[in-house]
Write a protein that binds this DNA or RNA. Sequence first.
DNA 1: ATGAGCGTGTCAACATGCTGACATGAGGAG
DNA 2: CTCCTCATGTCAGCATGTTGACACGCTCAT
Lengths: 155, 155
Amino acid sequence: MSQAPDFRPVDEQVGYLLKKAASALRAAMDDALRPLDLTVSQYACLELLRQQPGLSGSELARAMFVSRQSMNLVLKGLERRGLLTRSAVPPHGKALPTELAPAGLAKLAAANEAVSAVEKTMLSALSPEAERRMCADLTTFAAALTNLAGDAEPE
Amino acid sequence: MSQAPDFRPVDEQVGYLLKKAASALRAAMDDALRPLDLTVSQYACLELLRQQPGLSGSELARAMFVSRQSMNLVLKGLERRGLLTRSAVPPHGKALPTELAPAGLAKLAAANEAVSAVEKTMLSALSPEAERRMCADLTTFAAALTNLAGDAEPE
DNA sequence: ATGAGCGTGTCAACATGCTGACATGAGGAG
DNA sequence: CTCCTCATGTCAGCATGTTGACACGCTCAT
């Protein structure tokens, strides 16, 4: 009951640094994408769709760690701008497969070019080895937390 | 101009993993803090205030990577619940120094206990050395991105 | 002293994301 | 076949965070 349970300053705690890094990355990408009229969410959605065409809204939502409803709004916006296409009628169940339209592919190419500057900057700060290590550590980290949420949930 | 600019699957890219880890951490903390009627923002605010009593709203906002306005809402809520106190009149300029109230300190102690379970889980997944390394890498990472935003801004 | 510049707190409008709820379609248990 | 369960898309309401704008108080150059 003394008064030093964990007095480590916040900027030495993994959680805080994680938030700081994620926040900085998001801001940088936002700046890079603003001239193209794309938000980070929209860009991520397009890129995901390029790598895995035919994903449904719910699948995209899970991949991007947001709710179905939020993803639905993003998809509607992108569809209205002609950047992607969704089957009008569900070929199976209620899931609507989504794919990039030609305009979306072009937009994505421009976006990737804009983002590559940010990527280059952030990766140049890390050695290739450090980058690989960080990916592995982040994956481990996320897996541990996800399992915790999944297991501790019932009670 | 071929079609393989960066086809590395998203779950091997630092940015994606960063978002994934941050998202998982936030969800886990949210679960841990919900029984105490605290959001992650509120908890972070209290903890920050314990480590650095007397911070103003704007200073807290910067430390937490949100706008002054958002922080103001958080502070109002915590003040109304009697968890912190703000000078009624600004002792200097317009900045209102904020400090933890006794109730806030008690609440924070309970919150820290709840959060420690999450911390233990996530840190047990990483070796102490990996943790230290990760902190260093994340700091480097964030610094590179912050400088980018600061420099590229003018043009 | 006076004015410009800056940081701060606050109000308003807007954007984004979430939870809750509902209908629908597929698949399995009886 | 019928009922139950589950995943999906969608609507509504709410919470949180952001930008834009303004007033105020300090500081510094003139």
